[in-house]
């Protein structure tokens, strides 16, 4: 079973909750798909048994010796990446989308494409199973593609090591990497928090997972920070037919556990938060509410 933990809004506690689920019971495969800001490795310090590089894209580069500064390529670039500068025609690395068109139209073969392969994918053992995570090099695109690779790797690990459950810690937002994180999973859990932003982003995240027809449940984290707002979110979920599977109180122990490189269920197994999370995990595994 693949369970994806997502949140429209960042900082709702998605990773802390994923970490807790990953250390509650039997061994699991934990896939950190927040490749833009992978964090779970800090808590779990997994072995780097396997490492793969990932070509996230290509960038066009001008060969100064061949370029005649004719500027023919400039109007072809739909990303406004090519401009005249005092040094001649230049391509902005940030703006280039890697489409190859400038290279194709250059009459002097002065443009070539360079692969960007600084992103990495790691897999190895952690203290409660196997962990897979990707790290997108700064400024790189195609995080959706890296997410797909992380998930493929996680599925292979699941087969090879006989671990039935895959927990996916997804990225924030609703864009391509989120879609890649939830496509084809058995269920999605959206972590939200009781604030105006939390509700607004929950709505957008629920739209995305709803559009794929995936069973979606909601956890309201830090629920007691604003009970009225929490109630509002619950009402909204009810109207949308989304099950609120847990309300977790704000608990300073969660931060303490993180500082000590533990999940909350490892750090304070008898705390109320850990108890709620254990109950919730049972519900998630049973599939039904």
């Amino acid at each position: 079973m693949e369970i994806a933990i997502i949140s429209g809004k960042g900082g709702t506690g998605k990773s802390s909750i994923s970490a807790a689920f990953a250390t509650i019971s039997e061994e699991v495969v934990l896939a950190d798909c927040d490749v833009d800001a992978a964090n779970l490795y800090i808590l779990f310090n997994p072995e780097h048994e396997e490492e793969e590089s990932f070509v996230g894209g290509e960038k066009a580069v001008i060969d100064r010796d061949l370029c005649t500064n004719c500027g023919l390529c400039i109007p072809y670039c739909n990303f406004e990446a090519i401009v005249f500068s005092p040094e001649g025609v230049v391509i902005s690395e940030t703006a280039c989308d890697g489409c190859h068109l400038c290279k194709r139209v250059c009459p002097h073969q002065a443009i070539r494409m360079v692969e960007i392969d600084k992103s990495r994918l790691y897999a190895g053992a952690f203290r409660n199973g196997r962990m897979v995570y990707g790290r997108l090099a700064p400024g790189e695109e195609n995080s959706g593609k890296l997410v797909n690779l992380v998930r493929e790797k996680a599925q292979k690990q699941s087969k090879a090591f006989g671990l039935k459950t895959i927990i996916i810690d997804g990225p924030p937002g609703i864009g391509c990497p989120v879609i890649s994180s939830i496509t084809g999973v058995d269920q999605v859990v959206i972590i939200t928090e009781p604030s105006l932003s939390g509700l607004h982003d929950l709505e957008r995240a629920a739209d995305v997972s709803g559009s794929f027809g995936i069973k979606t449940r909601v956890i309201i984290n830090k629920a007691d920070l604003d009970e009225a707002m929490g109630d509002k979110i619950e009402t909204w979920c009810k109207e949308r037919g989304l099950e609120v599977v847990a309300k977790i109180p704000f608990d300073p122990e969660v931060v303490k556990s993180m500082v000590n490189c533990k999940s909350i269920s490892e750090w304070a197994p008898d705390s109320k938060t850990s108890q709620i999370l254990r109950e919730t995990w049972k519900v998630l595994l049973n599939g039904k509410g």
Partner: peptide, 14 residues
Amino acid sequence: APPGTSCPFIQTVD
């Protein structure tokens, strides 16, 4: 700005 350090972030801080 959007969170993270990938394209959306870069295009904003640029």
